[in-house]
């Protein structure tokens, strides 16, 4: 009897995960499998005919200068946004935890960009960053800083940086919210003890706060990896990957190959490389976090 029950509960366990298996199988694993399959074919993304071409798409992809630029831009974007977003988010969270006057209003204000549609944020920044009539350059000129009134989105030297700034503006509130939640879980006694021991603001921040919110930082890094690899909307809306290819991202590259150039095979190959990069980075990050937790 016991044996039968054990077999049954084993089957039941599988049944409990069946709904999510069906859903992810349909909408995730099938799509991944199809993308991998497509990456070995020549396909315009429309016809039913697909021609097997082996690794040709991958060979062309790795030979494509635009793809290299996209990889480089994604890396710069990831390093800049994740670090700065986390640092600013933590600073804001620490300030908000101090319960300064009006902190509830500030908390909402900082979080608003996170819930705003990217198309609205991009439209606003396109107007703000306009070279001739944008408020950013108008302000700089009014202060006599004409030399700083550059073409933020139209000059390859500044376009990527502009995208990074807009992205930080959009997601800083998200980092702040996660850190704020983590900070609320730290007992006040720890801070009071530190204060009694004569620890100042910076020492408390780096010796107490930062180590205790390590888990949140780790989560933000993983989300940052995935987020930077998925970044499309804000780039597409602000610069479209240009001028030239100067702000090309992996996602805009995939989009252009598939939709604009009708090259479904090469687009799929680029998509597969994004998946592999995301998996490798996520595994490395998880291993690093596990090692850190063991060391603690």
């Amino acid at each position: 009897m016991t044996g039968n029950r054990s077999v049954l509960s084993g089957w039941r366990a599988y049944l409990y995960v069946l709904p999510i298996l069906v859903l992810s199988g349909l909408f995730l694993y099938y799509c991944i499998g199809f993308t991998v399959y497509t990456s070995f074919h020549s396909w315009n993304g429309i016809d039913t005919d697909m021609k097997y071409i082996g690794f040709d798409n991958y060979i062309k992809l790795f030979d494509d200068k635009s793809y290299h630029i996209a990889l480089r831009n994604n890396l710069i974007f990831f390093v800049c946004t994740v670090g700065v977003q986390a640092a600013l988010g933590l600073m804001l969270a620490v300030l908000l935890r101090a319960k300064l006057k009006g902190h509830a209003i500030f908390r909402s204000v900082y979080f608003i960009p996170t819930i705003m549609a990217p198309i609205i944020i991009a439209a606003i920044f396109r107007i703000i960053m306009d070279t001739n009539f944008g408020s950013l350059n108008e302000g700089l000129r009014a202060m006599g800083l004409d030399f700083l009134a550059v073409s933020w989105l139209g000059d390859p030297k500044y376009a990527l940086m502009s995208i990074i700034i807009v992205n930080i503006f959009e997601w800083m509130g998200f980092s702040m919210t996660l850190y704020y939640s983590a900070l609320l879980a730290i007992p006040d006694e720890i801070y009071e003890s530190a204060k009694i021991d004569g620890s100042g603001f910076w020492r408390t921040l780096f010796k107490i706060t930062v180590p205790l919110v390590g888990g949140t930082t780790s989560t933000l890094v993983i989300l940052g990896i995935v987020g930077s690899l998925k970044t499309f909307d804000i780039v597409s809306l602000l610069t479209g990957g240009g001028p030239g290819r100067s702000t090309e991202f992996l996602t805009t590259y995939v989009y252009k190959k598939a939709i604009e150039e009708f090259n479904g095979g090469m687009s799929a190959a680029a998509g597969v490389t994004i998946l592999i990069i995301a998996l490798v980075l996520a595994v490395l990050q998880i291993q690093y976090t596990n090692r850190q937790q063991r060391d603690l």
Binding site: R126, I127, M129, D130, T131, N132, F133, S151, W152, L153, G154, D155, A159, T239, G240, G242, P243
Partner: peptide, 23 residues
């Protein structure tokens, strides 16, 4: 071409923010 032309789309930027606004 105006300064910053490479950062400006034809629609809506150049059309609405420049020509239709009388700038």
């Amino acid at each position: 071409m105006q300064d910053g032309a490479l950062g400006l789309s034809t629609y809506p930027d150049a059309r609405d923010q420049y020509f239709y606004s009388g700038k």
